[in-house]
Design a protein around this nucleic acid. Sequence first.
DNA 1: GGCAGACTGGATAGTCAAATCCAGTTTTGG
DNA 2: CCAAAACTGGATTTGACTATCCAGTCTGCC
Lengths: 210, 210
Amino acid sequence: MTPAAEGAGATRRTTRGLVTRERIVAAAAQLMFERGVAGTSTPDVRDAAGVSSSQIYHYFADKSALTRAVIEFQTARILTGQRVLLSRLDSFEALRDWRDAIVQIEHDLDCRGGCPLGSLTSELAEHDPAARTALAEGFTQWTAAIRDGLQDMLDRGVLRDDADPHRLSLATMAALQGGLILAQAQRSTAALEAGLDAMIERIAFHAVAP
Amino acid sequence: MTPAAEGAGATRRTTRGLVTRERIVAAAAQLMFERGVAGTSTPDVRDAAGVSSSQIYHYFADKSALTRAVIEFQTARILTGQRVLLSRLDSFEALRDWRDAIVQIEHDLDCRGGCPLGSLTSELAEHDPAARTALAEGFTQWTAAIRDGLQDMLDRGVLRDDADPHRLSLATMAALQGGLILAQAQRSTAALEAGLDAMIERIAFHAVAP
DNA sequence: GGCAGACTGGATAGTCAAATCCAGTTTTGG
DNA sequence: CCAAAACTGGATTTGACTATCCAGTCTGCC
């Protein structure tokens, strides 16, 4: 009946339908970012997206499926939104620009909302296995983007051979996520700045001597 | 009518009542840690604590008040639970022991649950100001415990004067929180280990030369 | 231009949790 | 030991949210 559910195989929808679907996901993403998943009801999404209830269940099997679409949406949003910065995260200057941009964004938001993926993680990881997997994949891609930049620095001889891009990128992502959590709790970017700065300095420790 | 609500001023309860109250908080804390606040209903807490519904509302004005009590409970639990390790977090050996203990705990939990405070933060910070304040205070105390150990190392000449205990403790807490989030999403302690190791190495950078 | 099916809107079951009420029991202080 | 208050248990009310249903509309295709 409902031909699509989600996923790849099913009969594709019209352009108009896909636009509507995307509008629902975008509205849900915004609301879930602001209020959390549990704090976002389907009537809320309906009103914000300017559609009717049945449409949500036309495009998504249930709220859980919608949530998974939101995770993919946020992952894509982060990766494309930071593409300019991430694609050449291959020098200390670029690292510092990236750090400054993140701190600036958080500052502009008055430290509200944390990380779009991090917030979803603590809310969903333990009772929605599919969501947890999708979030893990999102973090993996994000971390990989950082790792690639560091690998590039290593290949170009900016970093010494004893630098481990994979481990450093994991540590950087940890500092970022924790910094965002603390920013949200304390309404201050101090921990975020300290965490990212410490990681950049840690990476700089592996730089070839000036 | 309900004389207590919570807080300091009101008529104090009997020992028996306080024990019951504590049993409710402990049960709620465990459930909220496992399933999140929204995923924990008052009937769940009632059953887990072995009390009846009305008792919960006898001791707490509403679910929000219970949640705040859980935050204080978890803060106290962390600080006392890590007291042995935190009280003398004043050498590199102690730092590594602390790091190992945290990784071990997370490993024993199969990376489930994240941080008791971190999980609550992303769920509550944006729609419960009192909870956000309580969480911020919890993080501040926890971070201060780390900072005191680093300050001690600085005072004893283990660290050089250019080390900033406050900033280093903030960065360490960020790496810890982010590491726990990533552990929860990826069911692996890799990022937690990388983050904490990087911070310890970062601190070691300030050590007086051997 | 007209038909099949995709798409939409609002109304509505059915479920579950938050919070209240009240009758009965236990504890505490004098 | 006795009264007053604290405490307990379960039933109940109220409200909100998830998910479904169905009648009507719009779109794309021939």
